[in-house]
Amino acid sequence: MAKVSKSPWVLHYDGASCNGCDIEVLACLTPMYDAERFGVINTGDPKHADIFLVTGGINEQCKDVVKQLYEQMPNPKVVVAVGICACTGGVFKETYNILGGVDTVIPVDVYVPGCAARPESIIDGIVKGIAVLDQKREAMKQGKLPELNVEDISEDGKEQASANEAQNAEAETTANAGEESK
């Protein structure tokens, strides 16, 4: 497990998911799983947040909301895609309205697979996110500006989706490998 150096505050947004992952995100914060022991607090304000938990495959209407929330978060920031829909679009990938994954609109740092993602794996994802947060903070101290690649991602999410697939598969294998090694 990565060393927890700061208390990360999370912002949660449902980007067209079935609600299953969302209630599991909330379940993480309640007594059974208690993510607060890592200093995690759920905040409703993007300006206070360090980690952005997004569920769902992102549809046309919530695309701009997700982008806005991401842009409002201060640097350094980490995006965790929760659930298989957020990773690739999941079972809804073939529908007309789903872009197919959070990485079609904003850059994603940690992928948490599962339908619905279990609280244990969500907490694992957050903890992995904390490590990424530390790296980004270090990079910022050395004067490296964070990449602002929201604009790099093309407007037509569908096209981008196929390019991201290979990347997703890779990320999932790393996540799985991490679980096996535990």
Binding site: A16, G56, N59, F92, T95
Partner: peptide, 8 residues
Amino acid sequence: IGFVHRGL
């Protein structure tokens, strides 16, 4: 509404 419409 429409933020969660998936076209299921």
